[in-house]
Design a protein around this nucleic acid. Structure first.
Lengths: 170, 170
DNA sequence: ATTTGACAGTTCAATTTTAGAACTGTAAAG
DNA sequence: CTTTACAGTTCTAAAATTGAACTGTCAAAT
């Protein structure tokens, strides 16, 4: 599987991974949410090579996640800003941060806190069901094929052509 | 920046990316949530090379995201199952799926639907504020340094040592 | 008038990762 | 005794990433 194919798989997660599933893209997007907009800004904040940065920005623009907007003529210069499609990545970013906050902090505690302007409090992001509002637990979710399914991932792993129960577990 | 350093950055997102931020790791984790547990299962479901699969599984076990549990003696065989730390990645997975469902589906619609056993309905995951329960919008969140901060990412980009306003925008 | 610096890339050799395919080893089944 | 299932390991070729230098435009300083 080469990674262009990812975007064509009948799996929304695979497609998303094909778009943003690499280290630098994710870090670039982090910077975008932190209001970085310019080439040099990304480069110095991340230490990414200019080569890769240019390549990744181009890809994000091509995919409609960033928009490239001129901010000066003369030597033409552009800023990269998130489109709505890009802004919609926010829950992914927050979910990544929250997992890190939960499992990867050292003694000193969290590097960054998030305050919700609406209620004024520092918060954690919680993922809930759109229908009943309850927090989502993996165990309580049943996955089933939708209209765009075509074969893989019908859930409950249908891919054991010759499962034969060789022997009971040790 | 080489990717071992990522895990030591004072940024929960960077640390998380250092752990799960690559294509194959993410795809392997997808399979875990779809109940795949064995080496051959992962390999045939994903088409990943055996070499990389072995390496990635080892890493996920080392990081405490998967547990390697014997299911048979004789030719020793193990299953890889999610620990609590691994299960906690669920919101990340759902956020990835949801973005793909929103922005990467073709005419046929979603490949997979998710049903919440609690309420019985097919749902979308929604990220809300732990304090007030309102859905989170990027614009409404203010980031500020926490106890574990040490320099970068104080938000509102403090990294322009010589910003001088060369000229107004075009 | 010339040099320096900021900014946004591009180019290219060297290194690191990943892909692909074959090979190892145990044990059950035919 | 040979084949098959399973879980890796080993090795070479191909692809991606790093590091460092180079290009080009314009403003400011000398």
């Amino acid at each position: 599987m080469k990674w262009k194919e990812l975007e064509e798989e009948p799996c929304s997660m695979a497609r998303t991974i094909g778009v943003i599933g690499d280290r630098w893209t994710l870090l670039i997007l982090r910077e975008c949410f932190l209001r970085t907009r310019r080439f040099e800004g990304f480069q110095s904040a991340l230490g990414i090579t200019r080569h890769l940065l240019a390549e990744r920005l181009k890809k994000l623009v091509r995919l409609g996640i960033l928009r490239r907007i001129p901010y000066q003529e003369a030597p033409k210069r552009h800023e990269y800003i998130l489109t709505q499609k890009g802004l919609d990545l926010y829950p992914i970013m927050m979910a990544l941060v929250h997992w890190g906050d939960t499992h990867m902090v050292d003694e000193r505690g969290r590097p960054l806190l998030h305050q919700h302007r609406k209620c004024g409090k520092d918060f954690d992001p919680v993922m809930v069901c759109s229908e009943c509002g309850e927090p989502l637990l993996a165990k309580e979710v049943h996955t089933h094929p939708g209209p765009g399914a075509q074969s893989p991932l019908t859930i409950e792993a249908p891919d054991k052509p010759k499962a034969k129960a060789r022997r009971s577990a040790a």
